[in-house]
Design a protein around this nucleic acid. Structure first.
Length: 116
DNA sequence: GGTCTGACCGGCG
DNA sequence: ACGCCGGCCAGAC
């Protein structure tokens, strides 16, 4: 039998998001919407960000590589200090100007495409 | 168990 | 170019 016969659907949103976030290559960035879409919740990008908030518990999750569709470091406010997000991105050769990722489209990493 | 919020996204005026 | 609005899902109070 299955391991979980009557196992309720554990839509571990956290794990899903965390898993994808961990797969983000260094020097690349993705958007909440892209991850949401990859998970099947395209319109629920909000929860992706919220789930990322929980990523704070796991230091293995490069939340700083996740930005919004504009390439803006919207979540930097949740970092400590906020500037650490940009700092980490620059550390990965990702240029950030005015809280925005330079060449965002170029380094954009789409899980539904890259992880095909 | 209803209500609100949230690291978003895209459309419209 | 910019501001406002709704939508969508999941958790917290």
């Amino acid at each position: 039998m299955s391991k979980k016969a009557t196992a309720g659907k554990e839509h571990n949103f956290f794990e899903d998001v965390h898993d994808v976030a961990r797969l983000i290559p260094k020097g690349r960035v993705t958007s909440y919407g892209a991850i949401a879409r990859y998970l099947g919740t395209a319109m629920s990008a909000r929860m992706v960000g919220w789930a990322m908030n929980a990523s704070h518990m796991s230091k293995d999750i490069p939340a700083h590589r996740v930005v919004n569709s504009q390439g803006l470091l919207t979540g930097k406010h949740h970092f400590t200090p906020p500037s650490s997000m940009q700092r980490r991105l620059e550390k990965e050769k990702v240029k950030v100007v005015k809280d925005k990722v330079v060449d965002f489209q170029k380094i954009f990493w789409d899980p539904s495409k890259e992880l095909l």
